[in-house]
Nucleic acid binder design. Structure first.
Lengths: 151, 151
DNA sequence: TAGTATATTCGATATATGCCGAATATGTCA
DNA sequence: TGACATATTCGGCATATATCGAATATACTA
């Protein structure tokens, strides 16, 4: 993608608008949209050029995406050059949600321990149970999807 | 809760630490933790005092939480005073996630429309399908939970 | 091992965000 | 409607974050 067309720009911005409110930095969010549209892996120079950001920003954003496992790098044999592409592992984002659900549940249960009020104890346990149920449903779904795709 | 004890403070901070990375402002996140521990609805003055924040910050944070449907207000008859309490509607947070999943899927499908590359079209459709499946699983789970609690 | 291509880190700056207290708006009672 | 209690909004300040270009580190070739 040597030049971003208006339609593509709109797509990229649309994706970014969805992610930014959830704490993903603007540049990283845009980069994700951009990578989704790239038929081939791209390097930092292309990213910087097409997204009109500095190369250092591109580097930071790319590694952030990598951390989120929304993208990953490809090492080019015989070169220090790195190519990035969007991850095929679509479930990782949901897995991360699951981790939050679980962490939250644990925190709530810890809170139930320390609170003296019967009412609060019960409330915290109830929310924790709810979150864990959600996590389980999610996990199950992911397994089912995995089975379907794998088979 | 006229005074926050160390254990409670730790709980509040723990909850906040989980929410902040997901884009929830610090104060609002802390307030959520605080409300979870309150056996009774509290007003802005109590919040401001216990969390050691200004009343205007308390007001903003509370309404933000309200927007997220993590808390809601109670009007006190015969007074302009507003009391806040944590929402019993634990599923709303997940519902919101579902909305993101759906919005993302839509954006991806729109992207599939505009992209000329066969490969990209397929990729975007595939991710969209995945997200919608996740949303459906989630919705189903929520319904099941609702049935269980309701019945 | 030197030289080159490239990624990463760093320090400075610009921008955005959060927070506060003061000012304002709004609801409630008499 | 006037007086009061309370929530909300607003402008300014402090803090955090993102971005950049320059400096540095690293991996590869020869």
């Amino acid at each position: 993608m040597s030049n971003v067309e208006p339609d593509q720009r709109r797509f990229i911005d649309g994706i970014a608008r969805l992610f930014v409110p959830w704490g993903v930095p603007q540049t990283a969010a845009s980069l994700y949209g951009y990578l989704l549209l790239c038929p081939q892996p791209v390097d930092l120079d292309e990213i910087a050029r097409d997204l009109e950001i500095s190369k250092s920003s591109a580097s930071v954003a790319a590694r952030l995406l990598e951390q989120y496992t929304l993208a990953h790098r490809l090492r080019v044999r015989g070169s220090k050059r790195i190519l990035y592409e969007v991850s095929e592992n679509y479930e990782e984002m949901l897995t991360q949600q699951n981790r939050l659900l679980e962490a939250l549940a644990n925190q709530l249960l810890a809170g139930a321990q320390i609170s003296r009020s019967k009412k609060i104890k019960q409330r915290l346990k109830e929310i924790a149970a709810f979150n864990l149920a959600a996590r389980d449903a999610m996990t199950e779904m992911l397994q089912a999807m995995r089975a379907k795709r794998g088979g």
